[in-house]
């Protein structure tokens, strides 16, 4: 979409950031403000760069992204109709799936050859659409699992508690601090399997934060969460940005997307069909087409309808005259009329 951002939206965006945010939000949004709303546009400071990544399942092309850059320190919303390839793209970027081709990098370091746990160790941590709380571990144990570089996780050092006690204590303090922030501290000794769906989402996000990630990828963080909790989750996601993390999230609720994202990427049928600030997306014809279908966007006038029907009749008549008597003429006419 070639259109320049209108002064009105620009001003609106500025005033919104001025109210809500600290410096990082203003930075990311200001940096992205003057970019053209084009697919594959280069960002001033990209954290993740995707080039020519394709993934096919048999004959179906699930993902085919030519070029995509994700701005560092910003919240990038990834939207698209069901089956657009959003989750598949997440899986590819985090090493949970292997593409047919293409390259992608984080901080200039190619991720193509890395397994999922190696990607996570670099600081790219994801959550899952279907929440993966570790049911038969307590909430606190769930949190502690997220900590990186634990000495006690190596087989032989595990047998010598002296080696890991101190680190474990520090991690526990950090975990309790995070649990307090996410209001789960009262549940710390409960099995994660007893938490509600929304609490599990909170736990999964908190657990991801235990690893001090640089990039947090949230796959539908608000799905199945009640509206009150959504507000608190949104607050947490904004906090991540304030702390300088790069956030990429998949979401279907457009209010949420408009509320928190600095930049929105729209996928449909595996391709990125539009990018831009959230205000630009609802005006984008390609996006409207992808969500609602391309040919239902304008109501037919009566004259148009008559003209189209007449054309159809003419074609049917021509076919029937020219071809064999495979379709009785009256039937075709009846259907068309």
């Amino acid at each position: 979409m070639p259109a320049e951002p209108t002064p009105a939206t620009g001003a609106h965006a500025l005033s919104a950031t001025g109210r809500a945010g600290g410096p990082p939000q203003r930075l990311a949004q200001a940096a992205l403000r003057d970019l053209p709303w084009e697919v594959g546009v280069a960002k001033p400071d990209p954290a993740i760069v995707v080039d020519g990544v394709t993934r096919t399942f048999g004959g179906l092309t699930a993902v085919s992204v030519d070029h995509l850059e994700i701005q560092r320190g910003g919240i990038t919303g990834l939207i698209g109709p069901n089956g657009a390839g959003k989750t598949t793209l997440f899986n590819l970027l985090t090493g949970f799936d292997q593409p047919d081709g293409g390259t992608w990098s984080f901080d200039g370091r190619p991720l193509g050859k890395l397994a999922s746990h190696q990607v996570a160790r670099l600081g790219v941590v994801r959550t899952f659409q279907l929440t993966k709380a570790l049911s038969r571990l307590t909430v606190l144990q769930n949190m502690l699992l997220g900590a990186q570089g634990q000495k006690g996780e190596r087989f032989f050092s595990a047998l010598v508690p002296g080696l890991w006690r101190k680190q474990e204590r520090e991690n526990t303090e950090k975990a309790l601090e995070l649990l307090r922030r996410f209001k789960l501290d009262a549940k710390k000794d409960d099995f994660a399997g007893t938490l509600s769906g929304g609490q599990r989402k909170l736990l999964e996000m908190a657990r991801a934060l235990m690893s001090d990630p640089k990039v947090v990828m949230l796959d539908e963080p608000m799905a199945g969460v009640n509206p009150a909790l959504t507000q608190s989750l949104l607050g947490h996601v904004k906090d991540l940005r304030e702390e300088g993390m790069t956030v990429i999230f998949v979401e279907h609720d457009m209010d949420v997307v408009r509320d928190i994202s600095d930049w929105v990427v729209v996928m449909a049928a595996g391709n990125v069909i539009a990018e831009g600030p959230p205000e630009s997306i609802s005006q984008n014809k390609a996006v409207v087409d992808a969500y609602l279908g391309a040919h239902h966007d304008a109501a037919l006038t009566i004259e148009d309808e008559d003209r189209q029907l007449a054309e159809a009749d003419a074609i049917i008549a021509r076919d029937a005259d020219g071809g064999a008597a495979r379709a009785p003429r009256s039937d075709s006419g009846g259907t068309a009329r």
């Binding site: 190696q118 996570a120 959550t127």
Partner: peptide, 13 residues
């Protein structure tokens, strides 16, 4: 944790 869900464990490095 691997017993519960190995993908979650992978995602945590």
């Amino acid at each position: 944790s691997i017993r519960e869900d190995e993908d979650a464990v992978r995602a945590l490095g």
